[in-house]
Design a protein around this nucleic acid. Structure first.
Lengths: 258, 258
DNA sequence: TTCGAAAATTGACATAGATCAATATTTGAA
DNA sequence: TTCAAATATTGATCTATGTCAATTTTCGAA
């Protein structure tokens, strides 16, 4: 595995750091190329590090001019579209180290809004500067396209969940998917913070709040998970996985014939 | 509105044509820049125009190496993922003039399969050549990213449909969305070919075949649509629109206070 | 043109999860 | 610390749509 420079580590620091990651996170802006120091400096000049965004504040709004993409340094945000009828649909949650705003590429305005779920700090990558950089640094272009590809893949995965899976399967999938993202960020996949409300979760999963709440309690009764405030602990990963319809995802040694 | 060169018109012909389109289709590779003749020649050398693909044949398969994106010249294809559990989920239909295979950018293999719904001809744009071209022609890169952005937007729209809308609303939305795509291709939005089966439609919309079938008959009884073989005619666009939850989408003159 | 298989339609019934309603718990501002 | 508002949980129904089953229609090969 080629060492990869994590641009986000760089973005996160005021000076260029040269951390490497062995596996590339689905959504992080990991570059499969080594950036020259010059390029790092250029990038540094381009990045805007703004004030923290408070819980409930908007990062950008549906219909705003598409002027930047954002790398999240700390915190979490939710993205959602609002239909002409007024219905809101949460299209995704973004955690630290992930990129948001990419769908703006569709037509020069953001087709969705992004709101902070907790106090959040971001790096703004202004589009005009990024455009120039993309032409200069071919690897950067590739990596942004890779990120967009991942978002497409993730959304299509979600379509499958929404159209084919039961409520139990959806919640199990949701928790495991989150868990995996924390793991890739180097945190424990067993215990993490659920910064979104039950309403947000139910909206995202296409279920009623009551249904989600009921399943949470049942999962706890069955000792699949434990919750304490916003913290959640996954007690039985194996079982949760099979519930989610992934017979043996995280199992290292479930050897079976055939 | 700036005249835009339709690369697909070019791709469709053996010699460079210079057609323009006034409005840019959501998914077509319309360039908002004018290509130089040199660039057109370069592009011409890159494009592979293969044998027609017969109904039921695969264009590419989930897990195949990501080596090309495809512009559809004639015909129609469906894209679908198959979950570890074996369930299939159709993630989209692609008609002539649209681009498919973009989600391959996520991780060097196609995360989904594409199968022809009828005899289909495509232009293959090999990735390696395209990469080089993207570096040379900045507008090309932008346009491909725009296409990816549109796909994200479309998928997220679909998430809303799948998680919030009733069966009636979904089918109405589906028909209108298709209609719109035909219109943008310069065909009648009122009468077009439904090349996908009821099973395909139901799978895509997250419904049972029986439900879709029932709604088709009901829509016909209510004189919203008429079908004859694979041809469908939209009789009452207005009503269908309000059913789909878009109170006044195509209405030019539904002026209302507020 | 005919025939068998695949696709579509229609009907009867079952159920997962929505909805409505009441209560409990958490949060955060004073 | 206290209290009101927001959020979450639990219970009792109701319903849209899935499932199973039986025709009917369409399609494509011989």
């Amino acid at each position: 595995m080629t060492p990869q420079k994590k641009v986000l580590d760089f973005i996160g620091s005021s000076k260029a750091t040269k951390t490497h990651c062995s596996t590339c996170s689905l959504n992080a802006l990991c570059l499969p190329i080594a950036l020259e120091d010059d390029d790092l400096d250029t990038l540094d000049k381009v990045i805007k590090r703004g004030r923290p965004i408070q819980k409930g504040e908007m990062l950008f709004k549906q219909g705003d001019d598409f002027h930047a993409i954002y790398a999240i340094r700390t915190g979490a945000i939710k993205s959602f579209t609002v239909a002409p009828s007024g219905e809101e649909q949460i299209t995704g949650f973004h955690l630290a180290s992930e990129i948001t705003g990419l769908s703006g590429y569709s037509e020069d305005v953001y087709p969705l809004s992004a709101k902070a779920l907790e106090t959040t700090t971001v790096c703004e990558l202004p589009l005009d500067k990024l455009e120039v950089l993309c032409d200069e640094i071919s690897g950067l272009r590739k990596q942004i396209m890779r990120n967009m590809g991942s978002e497409i893949r993730q959304d299509q995965q979600m379509m499958l969940q929404l159209s084919k899976k039961s409520a139990d399967e959806r919640l199990a999938y949701f928790l495991l998917e989150l868990s995996g993202r924390f793991e890739r960020r180097g945190f424990s996949p067993k215990s993490f913070r659920l910064s979104m409300s039950r309403v947000d979760i139910s909206n995202y999963l296409g279920l009623a709040v009551e249904t989600v709440s009921r399943i949470f309690t049942r999962f706890q009764k069955n000792e699949l998970i434990a919750t304490e405030g916003k913290e959640i602990t996954i007690l039985n990963m194996q079982e949760l996985n099979s519930l989610a319809g992934n017979p043996n995802l995280n199992s290292e040694c479930v050897a079976q014939h055939q």
